[in-house]
């Protein structure tokens, strides 16, 4: 009885909240009204396309567990995807943040949750690293991956007045002054720390890695010239290149980055150092195939929607879609490579 009452109360409240929100968005004038109408037309078509005829999934709210705290790129991604899923599929989707241990807390939570498809989570590149780092027993094979739609490569930034203009100059400078050059990264054991290590490894140079508090901390230190260079993501520093504060010597990918089209890649400059940060989605193992397919297809549609692509462009990220199989392949390859690297370089926590 009491539960029922609670349900009624909660439903009325939810309804009134929805009403308030729609009222608020419709009260705003001309501009936003137009795209909204287009949006409502689009999902009707897509809804018919999705092969959800034989299954009734989802009947309840889908909960996305985000591994990162509010304010970061992964959190924005999770919320954006939730929004697109709501608009396109008409699902009810919530986002919840469970942070800690480079994402291990959130991912382990998803791994251990009931495999009914209603709990899914974000799968950051750390999925391939946390086992080697010793944070948690979890690798890409332990979960079922749903697809990935956001990635961006590492990039090497130096101050605009630095005495080197190409990666080769930089490497030569490092060789002349072994151990003198200090390279900032976004924290010990973070993907950009690995990125800097990969570069040092492939170019056979000796640099001092200095961990900062996230990519922001590393960028601040570089802008303040406390440090000689920084390895962070392309999207985290390209605006400083545009403003002339920094220059970027290389992006660590096979193709040139869309936000830094003038910057050559590491491959172009003769180093095979590809370090890419990706954020995809995962579900616990054992979700039944019908629900899994619905989720995968829904995410694929979401990743290919205009709203989502605009979101990635705005942040300077690459919105290339990786199907679950491609995603697993990429994650597994990274897992093998990073595990080897982390134990070789001795970044193993005790």
């Amino acid at each position: 009885m009491k539960k029922r009452l609670a349900k009624v109360i909660s439903l009325t409240c939810a309804a009134s909240l929805m009403f308030a929100l729609t009222a608020c968005s419709s009260s705003s004038p001309e501009q936003p009204a137009a795209p909204q109408e287009q949006e409502t037309e689009a999902p009707a078509e897509q809804g018919a396309e999705t092969p959800s005829a034989d299954t009734s999934f989802p009947e309840d709210t889908v909960n996305i567990i985000c591994h990162a705290k509010e304010g970061g790129g992964s959190d924005a991604l999770a919320r954006q995807v939730a929004q697109v899923l709501q608009d396109q599929q008409g699902w009810s989707v919530t986002v919840e943040n469970k942070t800690g241990g480079s994402g291990s807390v959130g991912m382990q939570f998803v791994q251990n949750s009931k495999p009914d498809g209603y709990t899914i989570g974000t799968a950051p590149v750390e999925l391939s690293m946390i086992e080697a780092l010793g944070y948690a027993e979890l690798n890409p094979e332990d979960v079922s991956l749903l697809g990935c739609g956001m990635s961006w490569p590492a990039a090497l930034y130096v101050p605009a007045d630095a005495p080197y203009d190409t990666l080769e100059d930089f490497v030569n400078y490092c060789k002349e002054n072994p151990g003198k050059v200090q390279v900032a990264n976004s924290g010990i054991g973070s993907i950009w720390h690995i990125g800097a290590c990969v570069l040092a490894d492939k170019a056979d140079i000796e640099v001092t890695h200095v961990p900062y508090d996230g990519a922001t901390g590393a960028m601040t230190a570089l802008l303040g010239k406390e440090i000689d260079a920084a390895v962070v993501g392309t999207c985290e520093g390209y605006s400083y290149v545009e403003s002339g504060d920094l220059k970027c010597l290389a992006s660590f990918s096979e193709e040139r980055s869309s936000v830094l089209p003038d910057v050559p890649t590491t491959a172009e400059q003769g180093y095979d150092a590809n370090v890419i940060c990706w954020v995809g989605f995962l579900a616990p193992q054992g979700v039944d195939d019908a629900a899994l397919t619905v989720l995968q297809d829904a995410l694929k549609t979401a990743f290919e929607s205009e709203d989502y692509i605009a979101f990635c462009d705005g942040r300077g990220c690459d919105s290339t879609y990786f199907s679950p199989e491609e995603f697993l392949e990429m994650a597994a390859a990274d897992y093998t490579y990073y595990s080897q690297l982390i134990s070789d370089l001795g970044i193993v926590a005790e």
Partner: peptide
Amino acid sequence: VMFAVFLKVR
């Protein structure tokens, strides 16, 4: 109602 419904904390 405040936490679970309004702010969507389970």
